[in-house]
């Protein structure tokens, strides 16, 4: 979706503000926010693309006024509400008002290390031949899906070069809606900065995105 999360090239946010010796967390609640989101993954049964979709599918003003952990918490509340796991009135009340729903599994303390080490690889067996090869010229499609997608607006319609073929990976656009993993070839596509930002822009800049095959046309 063309939401506030798609920030590449947007003006007006001001300078980056690095924080010397930044701690991993800035408040106790941030620690809990991270841990709750990670711990609820196995119980909730959603995937990373559903999580991202839940975080970004909000009015742009809401997205931009939240800190990153606030965005995560809002996304978690939404995923749980959609599945009837926890309803908003329970959070308002500060306690459970309805009996629990059965969940596939609970992340036990003893399994945390194993589960984090396993992670969630997205590469899948290849069943088709890659349409593009290294060095091919491709153009990012001018598409505007209203649901989750990982093709940023700033490359749409622009031509670049396939720099690497990364194998077949879970396709976020279908995975986010529950329509399945539908693995697709993934490419690193490199664009000249001047192709993206115009002839007046810095000629020494090149930018790449990782783009799934359905996002690309030959150019």
């Amino acid at each position: 979706m063309n939401g506030a999360q798609d920030m590449g090239g947007v003006h007006g946010f001001g300078p980056v503000q690095p924080e010397p010796n930044e701690p991993p967390f800035h408040a106790e609640w941030e620690k809990k926010a991270l841990a709750l989101v990670l711990a609820m993954g196995p119980a909730g049964g959603w995937n990373i693309d559903m999580s991202r979709s839940a975080r970004e599918n909000v009015p742009p003003g809401d997205y931009l006024s939240r800190s990153y952990y606030q965005i995560w918490i809002a996304g978690l509340e939404r995923l749980m509400a959609e599945r009837g796991l926890v309803l908003p009135e329970e959070i308002d009340a500060g306690r459970a008002l309805y009996p629990p729903k059965p969940v596939p599994r609970t992340l036990a303390a003893a399994d945390v290390d194993k589960v984090l080490r396993r992670g969630g690889p997205t590469e899948r067996e290849t069943k088709t031949n890659a349409r593009f090869a290294m060095g091919d010229r491709v153009r990012a499609k001018n598409i505007h899906p209203t649901a989750h997608t990982r093709l940023p607006r700033y490359v749409r319609g622009h031509a670049g070069i396939v720099e690497a073929v990364r194998g077949c990976h879970v396709f976020p656009d279908t995975n986010a809606t529950g329509a399945g993993e539908d693995p697709q070839w993934l490419y690193t596509v490199r664009f000249e900065g001047t192709e993206l930002w115009g002839a007046e822009s810095d000629p020494t800049v090149k930018v790449s995105v990782d783009a799934w095959e359905p996002y690309l046309d030959p150019a």
Partner: peptide
């Protein structure tokens, strides 16, 4: 509130 509720419901350890 989330921590309390998720613990009460047994979704998290």
């Amino acid at each position: 509130a989330l921590e309390t509720i998720l613990t009460e419901k047994g979704y998290i350890d």
